[in-house]
Design a protein around this nucleic acid. Structure first.
Lengths: 119, 119
DNA sequence: ACATTCCTGTTATAAAATAACATAACTTTC
DNA sequence: GAAAGTTATGTTATTTTATAACAGGAATGT
């Protein structure tokens, strides 16, 4: 599992739960919380938070999904190609919740600086 | 309260609880969670989370304190002068937790763009 | 003094995340 | 193909983070 060659695609390489969770996140089209995912998937056999968290964490690892820290919610990564490890600014609409990603070189430079300084 | 002329200073204009909470956050010198603040201040009469959250939220409003979203924790704003409303990148040390602030114009431009787009 | 506003305290509850443990499925490797 | 190893799954309980709702108290303004 966790096939690096398939990262960022809609892989057949996902496990059952990962596929279920990804489906809901995609259908939402905006940041969605773990417990809302749980509610949506209850009827389909997902019965505990742990299962959801395990799945989203895998998806984040794969670069398919991002966490919006300020909302405790998760979005499908909209970019066609994966930006693994790259820092991202997520602009979130106050009203509709739509997210636009900015992969910002400036931010990356700042982070690089921080790493140099032993951060 | 919330005297705009004193923002960013160590004001006498703080209420009792705000002063207590700020003291702990400053003493920590790194991001500290609400419940850890609570534990520290238990002996000094703070007995519930609400009190802590009320205080930190006021301090954030004043620009004295920032929330580190990715950690659910709070830091004293290190800059001498206040950057109210301005977007900030917080570089947090993995090891010691020390925080350096970047007030990034690029990010601000991105945010401005987002606002224009009715975000 | 009266109304207004803001800070305070308390209890209860919601929301988000992880710990700990047991089982099942899928690969290796021999 | 059986034993060993790894990864996904399921379940229960707990921890951590945050807010709702209500009541009393202190300061301020007019």
């Amino acid at each position: 599992m966790l096939d690096l060659n398939r990262v960022g695609t809609i892989p057949g390489g996902l496990t059952k739960n990962q596929a279920l969770v990804l489906e809901i996140i995609e259908k939402a089209g905006k940041p969605i919380g773990a417990y809302e995912i749980l509610r949506e998937l209850g009827p389909r056999g997902i019965k505990s938070p742990v299962q959801v968290y395990r799945a989203v964490n895998s998806l984040i690892q794969c670069g398919i999904v991002r966490k919006v820290e300020s909302m405790n919610a998760f979005v499908r990564c909209t970019d066609a190609h994966p930006h693994r490890g790259q820092t991202t600014i997520l602009a979130v609409c106050d009203r509709c919740g739509t997210v636009v990603e900015h992969h910002d070189e400036t931010v990356d430079r700042r982070v690089a600086w921080a790493e140099q300084e032993a951060f």
